[in-house]
Simulated assay, not measured.
Amino acid sequence: MIYARMFLALVMVASACPDLYAANLLVGRVVDDHQQPISHVTVQSSRVERTVQTDETGAFRVIRTAVEPVAITFSHAGYIPRTIRVDAAADTIAVVLTEQIYPMEGITVTAGRAVEKQTPVPFATIDRAEIQRQYDFGEIPALLETTPNLYAYSDAGGGAGYSYLKIRGFDGRRVPVYINGIPLNDPEDHALYFVDLPDFAETVDNIQVQRGVGNSLYGDAAFGGAVNMLTSPLAQTRRFSAEFGYGGFLQGDSTVGLMRKTSVGFATGLLDNGWSLSGRWVDQYSGGYREESWYDGTAYYLSVGRMDPKMITAFNAYTGPMRTHAAWDG
């Protein structure tokens, strides 16, 4: 009789276990502000059997240690942790986590330009006002010939045609030249050519010449120094220009190496939608100071840009088709 009562008690306890398990089971789902499921969210509390994580659908299930109100914390990298108090009678919950932005220290991106009293390298900066004062015809080396430690020359003896520069005795193969951070030197042999950049100084905002070995940004070929050119920024005002020039070299009572230049430029300024468009066309000719060293070239420049509240996007296109005599061959 005693064994029969014990067996009946065990049966009653066993039949009560599923009901007890169901009462302590808590299931739910975690989503973000856009109702997208978040996986691998940590679900933990001192009143649950063990810490669990959500699956790929954001679902989870935990077993409470007692049928009573319990506080459960949900945490995930990139989201603000959230603690929810769950009633004893609740068996399902829905949780929404908000994305968290972690503040960081400011990041400053700088180009390879020297700063006065900060960069340990001798340099010279030619701003736009100085370029307008010195430049009228020719190529970049002729514009920079007054820079200390820089020597410029050309095959034709004038400002146009094949021209070159040296810094501290090193030729163009050891002097990297950049336009808006883009290398101008030939990638194969590091040779430097300005002949297909006629009248480029008209589209340059400033030029910096660094003398000697300096910033490692320029690579191991920068023994003599480096030249960094920045083109003009987006045009803020509307303008139109047309120019014509004519001249030459005086030799006694005669004129040799006749030169002429014609240019037309425009800029729309900053339009209402944030766009800006500017362009320039140039045709120039030089007879050269030496005999049979003439140069005849045309240049096209087009700049399209857009100014947004936190970003400026610009596209610059430049080409300079030309014909020259064989002055470079003697």
Rank of each mutant, 00 (worst) to 15 (best):
3 Y>K: 02
4 A>D: 04
5 R>W: 15
5 R>K: 13
7 F>M: 07
11 V>I: 12
14 A>I: 05
14 A>T: 01
20 L>A: 13
28 G>Q: 03
28 G>S: 05
28 G>L: 12
28 G>V: 10
30 V>I: 09
32 D>F: 14
36 Q>P: 00
39 S>Q: 15
44 Q>P: 05
47 R>A: 11
48 V>R: 02
51 T>L: 09
53 Q>T: 09
58 G>L: 07
63 I>L: 08
64 R>S: 04
64 R>D: 01
66 A>N: 15
70 V>A: 13
79 Y>E: 12
80 I>Y: 08
84 I>A: 03
87 D>I: 06
88 A>W: 05
90 A>M: 10
91 D>H: 14
92 T>R: 14
93 I>Y: 04
95 V>R: 10
99 E>G: 13
100 Q>E: 07
101 I>Y: 13
101 I>F: 13
105 E>R: 08
110 T>M: 15
110 T>C: 09
116 E>A: 13
119 T>H: 06
120 P>G: 15
124 A>D: 13
127 D>W: 11
129 A>Q: 14
132 Q>W: 04
139 E>N: 14
139 E>Y: 08
148 P>D: 12
156 A>E: 06
156 A>G: 07
159 G>N: 09
161 G>Y: 00
162 Y>W: 03
165 L>D: 11
166 K>W: 11
166 K>V: 12
171 D>T: 11
175 V>T: 12
178 Y>A: 07
179 I>W: 09
181 G>M: 15
183 P>I: 14
190 H>V: 07
192 L>Q: 06
193 Y>T: 05
196 D>F: 04
198 P>A: 02
198 P>W: 02
202 E>R: 08
205 D>K: 15
206 N>T: 10
208 Q>C: 05
209 V>K: 03
210 Q>S: 11
211 R>T: 10
213 V>A: 07
214 G>H: 03
215 N>R: 03
218 Y>E: 05
219 G>Y: 00
222 A>K: 06
222 A>D: 07
224 G>C: 01
224 G>E: 00
224 G>L: 00
226 A>C: 06
227 V>A: 02
230 L>R: 15
231 T>L: 08
233 P>D: 10
233 P>Q: 13
237 T>D: 10
238 R>F: 06
239 R>M: 09
241 S>G: 12
243 E>I: 10
251 Q>L: 01
251 Q>N: 00
256 V>G: 08
259 M>S: 00
260 R>W: 14
262 T>E: 04
264 V>D: 02
265 G>N: 11
267 A>P: 13
271 L>G: 05
276 S>P: 01
277 L>M: 07
278 S>V: 01
280 R>G: 03
281 W>A: 14
282 V>P: 13
283 D>F: 10
284 Q>H: 08
285 Y>K: 06
289 Y>M: 04
291 E>H: 10
295 Y>D: 00
304 V>W: 05
310 K>P: 03
311 M>T: 06
311 M>S: 07
313 T>D: 00
316 N>S: 01
316 N>P: 00
321 P>E: 12
323 R>E: 11
323 R>S: 07
326 A>K: 04
326 A>C: 03
